[in-house]
């Protein structure tokens, strides 16, 4: 079927209006939880669940189950049967059947993760930490490498709970906490920047449709004002 009409200016305009309306419905939560937000929230959950099912079917089940079986590798059906067994989790009496596929997934991915974590997060990170502590003619690089080596050691020592962190160990672990705090602060700043750029993106989208955005915004404000007045509990007289 031909869907080129979805690229027509009218449909693009309608899409823009829908996007602006949905954006404002979600932003209405900044006032308080309200029916507009609840509507958009439930729509989001429904649409994303449906989207996920279709994508999982097309990207995982078709290439890893349907195609191999169609090509004559019938033994792949075992995984389909195990997958269906997983759905027994919803049954009160037969939920134990779901343990088999669950055990398969847990076992396989535990094994894969041990190697993956060992390679990427353990060996690679330790190798990257082994830095020269004296860089001739570059005091900044020397200081930076000291910070990396000492910071990593102090941070790891902070996570070592088999010995009471007092005395010299206490001092080092205290410095380890400082490094962790800098790390948390930097990550926080980074996250804030990411969220703010998302918010700016949404406002830019709204500015592309100023008329519909203004109308919808005014309607939301009017309805919220009326809703607040009507649902306000009378103040008890003393």
């Amino acid at each position: 079927m031909d869907f080129t009409f979805l690229q027509s200016p009218t449909i693009i305009q309608i899409s823009g209006w829908i996007m602006a309306i949905l954006t404002l419905l979600i932003f209405s939560f900044l006032y308080k939880d309200n029916p507009f937000y609840k509507f958009a929230e439930h729509l989001f959950v429904g649409v994303s669940a449906g989207y996920g099912v279709v994508i999982v079917y097309n990207n995982v089940i078709v290439p890893n189950l349907v195609t191999p079986v169609m090509n004559g590798r019938a033994y792949y059906l075992i995984f389909g049967v195990l997958g269906v067994m997983m759905l027994f989790k919803l049954s009160r009496k037969l939920h134990w059947i779901s343990r088999w596929p669950l055990a398969y997934v847990v076992g396989a991915f535990a094994g894969i993760q041990i190697i993956a974590y060992g390679q990427s997060d353990l060996i690679t990170q330790i190798r990257a930490t082994i830095q020269p502590l004296w860089v001739a003619g570059d005091p900044v690089a020397t200081l930076s490498n000291w910070l990396i080596v000492f910071g990593v050691l102090a941070g790891i020592l902070y996570f070592f709970f088999s010995k009471k962190q007092t005395g010299a160990l206490g001092v080092v672990t205290k410095i380890g906490i400082w490094f962790l705090m800098i790390s948390f602060g930097a990550s926080f700043g980074y996250t804030v920047m990411g969220r703010i750029s998302l918010a700016i993106g949404r406002f830019q989208d709204l500015l592309e449709f100023p008329v519909i955005s203004t109308i919808v915004l005014l309607i939301i404000i009017a309805v919220l004002v009326v809703h607040t007045i009507m649902t306000r509990e009378p103040v008890a007289e003393e």
């Binding site: 910070l147 990396i148 910071g151 941070g155 790891i156 490094f179 800098i182 790390s183 930097a186």
Partner: peptide, 12 residues
């Protein structure tokens, strides 16, 4: 540097 040191300790 300082952030990477803290992050690396957490990762390890």
């Amino acid at each position: 540097y300082p952030n990477m040191a803290g992050k690396r300790a957490i990762l390890i």
